[in-house]
Every structure is written in structure tokens, then in C-alpha cells.
Amino acid sequence: MLLTLIRYDIIRTLRRGFSVVTPLLFFTMIICLFPFAIGDNARLIAPGIIWVAALLAVLLSIDTLFTKEWETGCLDHLLLSPYSLTQLVSIKLLSHWITYSLPLIIISPVLGLLLHLPPPVIKTLMITLLLGTPVLTLFGALGAALMIGIRENSVLLPILILPFYIPVLIFGTSAITTPGSLPLLGALLLFSIATLPFLITQALKIGVDT
């Protein structure tokens, strides 16, 4: 069931057409802004630039995560289905991460080369992104779940969620220079995998109930 649902979810997202590529394009363009703004010094802060851009790209992709389900009434059916909503939410988040965040990580070496990052740093950067982006997706999804049924929400989601992105950013970028932070980032990932799907489910229930 798991694989079927993931495949179905990914196919459905891909059929939406160009919107799948938008966060990726956004990610690339944000990173390309910095060499123009800062000049040659951009390579000194390149990992930070890539991290911030990835964070914003995830935030951009996530705000409509549950909107379709909410508008079509699909969410009510999912609540009534025999499967636990937490499970279904986790599957949805996994497929969202595969379609939106994984491409960012795959393209990041190229962008690292654009910013003159040495290959070993690029490797660590990719590892930190691999560990960090799921946390970003999970917290973003919590915000998106709280947003269902709220009309004017375009600015609210970043305001609500960005405070929780700060620790991820701190550990993610510091792991590139000090390897000791990498386990902390991993711990953050495990902690959010363990707690957030449940909280997201509660947030969805709050939205559906009222």
C-alpha cells in the first residue's frame, strides 16, 4: 500500500505540470542573485547561501500541500478511511520530499561549482541538505496543515514556521565547518520524524472540525 500511495502521489504531482519545477527554478535563481550582489566574495559564504535558498524553496513549495485535499473534500474522506491519518500524512510528506526537495539536493553540486565550492565541501553540504530538508518539509507541513480553511495566508505561513527553521539552519550550516554538528542535525531529524506527523494530523483535524 505504501509504495502504491507514494507512486500515486508523485504521479499526481507531476501531472500538475510546470509547478513542480518552480521551486527548483526559484532555488537556482536565488543562488544566482548572490554573486551579483556580493561579487567574488560570495564563495566564502556559499554553503550558507545554498542553505537559505533551499529553506526558502521548501517554504515556497509547501504552502499548498493540503489545499487541494481540503477544497475537494478529500480530507474528510481520508479522515474517515480505515487507515490512520498519521500514516497517510507521512506518506504524503515522503512523496512531497521526493518530488520537491530531492531535486534541490541533486542540483546543489552544480550550484556549488558555480559558487566555486571545493568538492569535499560540496559533499558535506549535500549530506547536511539530505538530513536537513526533511525537517524543513515536516515543519512546513505543520504550518500548511494549520493554514487550511484560512483565507489570507500567504505571509502567515513563513512568519509562523521560520522561527522553527532557524535551528535547522544553524546546525545545517555549522555541520559544514564543524563535523560535530552533523549528529545534532540527525537527532533533530529523528525527533521531528517521531513527533511532527502526529502534530500535523492534529492540525488537520482542527481545520476539518471547525
Binding site: 494549520l146 484560512i150 502567515l156 514556521i161 522561527p163 502534530l199 482542527i206 472540525d209 471547525t210
Partner: peptide, 30 residues
Amino acid sequence: FIYGGLIALQSIIANKQHRDRAVSLMTLVG
């Protein structure tokens, strides 16, 4: 910032029950 997010959240939701529970959940996370 978390306080700011909570204030924004509670000021934007019109339905009182929805607002109280959403703000509560976010408070717990924070």
C-alpha cells in the same frame, strides 16, 4: 518570533474555536 507568529495566527482566524485550538497547537510546538 514565535510570539509574533502566534499573534499573527490568532489575529487572522475568525472562528473562535478554530483559533483557540490552532494557537494552542502552535504554542505546544513552540
